[in-house]
Design a binder for these strands. Structure first.
Lengths: 388, 388
DNA sequence: TTAGTTTGTCTATTGAATAAACAAAGTTGT
DNA sequence: ACAACTTTGTTTATTCAATAGACAAACTAA
């Protein structure tokens, strides 16, 4: 059965995690304050903090102000005890960051991808990562891991099962990278990474139930339920883009009819614009036209917003989340979408659910996914700390 | 902050729960076997088992067969250490069970409800529960709690926020019952209760991600994600019945257009049947006609099945569950629905998700919800045991 | 009868948390 | 300047759960 039974080591892991989290969240603070807020005994806190200091994860940073007694010794998390790499692998680009353990960006890189052939992508990706790693200052833990967001379905083993836009099938990305760099590697879907990035570093900070909707060529979604990424039975989920919203609607390449993303994506926008005669314009061109006062483009965007709202209403009715975060390239059209989305949502979602939901727009721009990727690497490092 | 810090009491609770669960799942079994399967030391198991015996939750039930050495002393969970009450409160009926702590039904009752007025419903419900309780044999723990499933939205405090079909708003059901009986009372939505019932006692035993679809007058849904009931940000969720599947479809009383339940519920069936001239027939009448070979009723049912399949495909794409369980009155039409549902699902859901999903039909019939309700009471009892 | 096996308890030890005492380092009022 | 009080953080003795290993009891097999 191999169950996790309770023993003293478990207690220590739990309490160490509590102390470390208190320091992460409220730094700088003293041992006394930690004891007070966590309920742990002062002696216990002292001992656990000493272990953390020995492990180079926490440091004393001078004394704080007295409130009528001995001055407290302030503690801080040593954010530069280690560094992590995050990669956002797109269809025609790759973006990478090197951050410290708090997610502060130390270095950032981006390059175009001119091929989708897995071997040649690896050929570009490997030196790309190596260059980021080379920029990390010396530190006790060094590079603690690599996180990667990819535009496709990923299984538990970090293999890309299927990435239609890159024509990838069963590409063992994690294995390839962890063999090259001999480091822990975390792979996940780009939308999941984006959801994580916004929850940790963006507009979704501290919200427990988030539906992240990335509107680009298609619609990708990441679900954060009860503060953690939800993955379905086989380790992936959230193909909300292929939700039917018109039972007898247009056929989709997925085999279904009337999928949401056929009506509310960048692709949908471009197609409908072409029908109106804007054959040569891309998203930027259309936004520029709308900006310049082109009414027919504006009303087209409004219609896209209405369809976005229909899908979002469905999501709200199903998940009753605290927040829906709209991200992806199309989120740049916010000024023309926002009202239509809001009106449609209010008309179509149940009142009880509307009470608690906020429609938000991604704060990190195109960095949502890459920041989520690096967060995957960082949190996996902390997880390993706890279980060893 | 009031965190749950780790201490020795916590270890003991965890390990006691592990031992108890081993006994619950594999009874009868010996101390030695428990030690072997859980990884806990023999001495530890002995001590914890002794505590459980002292608490009347476990008993020795003679010796087992020897495998070449001393005979093992077999242990069993004392299912009749206590009893629980489960209630399924419907719009025009109430159903109740009294079970032991394993969920074995000791007594079952059902009565019609002729009013939806909260006070008068209470007036019927109170003696109904009392009579069930009176049938419980003497036991160490007595009645450990009452679980109730209701057809409406329920908040954290066990108040019924809104039950449209009963015209209830803000009815403090838990408070009323726990005051009357001075017992722990758990209230939840009827679909959530049904999901729990099937997961614990029915076709969904041991499955971690379940979407339970109760098709009756409307469509209610209960989500079990990662082996536990998912509740949204405000403690309720799963209004999947009001998911849009026809963006410009029929108006629904919820304010939305084209809701799923307008096309795939008992109500939809009856309405469409009426249009075909079956004005006087109810569900039973229609099923009898189909049974007798009425082709137009059969093709009507098939169409309902297709729409059911559309919604289920959406659910599968979003949640990637291990199982979808179809329940409720319309599940009796299974012979005419099954193929249409399966075909539609296979055509419309993504292949990657189809690999892992089973479409199942409720095993407990109309007892899903009442068994889930009693499970709520039982599991809350075990939870309290752990935290005290 | 003897040797080996299995079960379950007993004993001494380990290690984590804790309360209480305490030392160190501060503030405040007169 | 000084006594009285506060706050911080460490030290000490104690408690409690789990554990390894010894052990007794109960059984099988040959």
């Amino acid at each position: 059965m191999s169950m996790t039974t309770g023993d003293q080591a478990m207690i220590k892991r739990i309490n160490t995690a509590i102390v470390l989290e208190a320091i992460l969240r409220h730094a700088p603070l003293s041992r006394a304050k930690i004891s007070e807020t966590t309920g742990l005994n002062k002696a216990t806190v002292s001992s656990l903090v000493q272990d953390l200091i020995d492990n180079k994860l926490v440091a004393e940073t001078g004394t704080g102000a007295s409130s009528g007694g001995r001055k407290p010794v302030m503690l801080e998390f040593v954010a530069d005890a280690g560094y992590a790499v995050g990669i956002d692998l797109g269809v025609n680009y790759m973006r990478g960051v090197l951050t410290d353990l708090r997610g502060n960006v130390v270095s950032e890189r981006m390059t175009a991808l001119t091929t989708v052939d897995p071997d040649r992508v690896f050929g570009t990706l490997r030196p790309f990562i190596q260059q980021l790693m080379d920029e990390a200052p010396d530190s006790p833990f060094g590079i603690v891991g690599i996180g990667v967001g990819v535009p496709g379905l990923v299984d538990r083993n970090g293999s890309v099962l299927f990435a239609p836009n890159m024509d990838w099938r069963d590409v063992p990305l994690r294995e390839a990278l962890s063999r090259t760099f001999n480091l822990p590697v975390m792979i996940d879907n780009e939308a999941n990474a984006g959801a994580l990035g916004e929850q940790r570093f963006g507009i979704g900070r501290g919200i427990s139930n988030i539906v992240y909707v990335s509107v680009g060529i298609g619609i990708g979604t990441g679900l954060i339920l009860q503060s953690r990424l939800y993955k379905g039975s086989s380790g992936f989920s959230g193909e909300i883009g292929h939700m039917t919203i018109e039972a007898g609607g247009k056929p989709c390449r997925c085999g279904n009819l009337g999928c949401w993303e056929l009506y509310a994506s960048e692709q949908a926008l471009l197609e409908q614009a072409a029908e109106l005669g804007y054959k040569d314009k891309d998203l930027d061109g259309l936004l520029a036209a709308a900006e310049a006062g082109d009414e027919s483009v504006a009303s087209l965007l409004k219609r896209i917003g209405e369809y976005l709202g229909i899908g979002i209403a469905n999501i709200v009715n199903v998940f009753n989340p605290n927040a829906v975060i709209i991200a992806g390239r199309l989120s740049r059209a916010r000024p023309w979408l926002e009202e239509a989305v809001k009106d449609t949502l209010e008309r179509r979602a149940l009142g009880f659910h509307l009470r608690n939901v906020n429609v938000l727009y991604a704060e990190l721009g195109d960095r949502s996914a890459v920041m989520g990727a690096v967060e995957m690497a960082i949190s996996s490092f902390f997880e390993r700390l706890k279980t060893s």
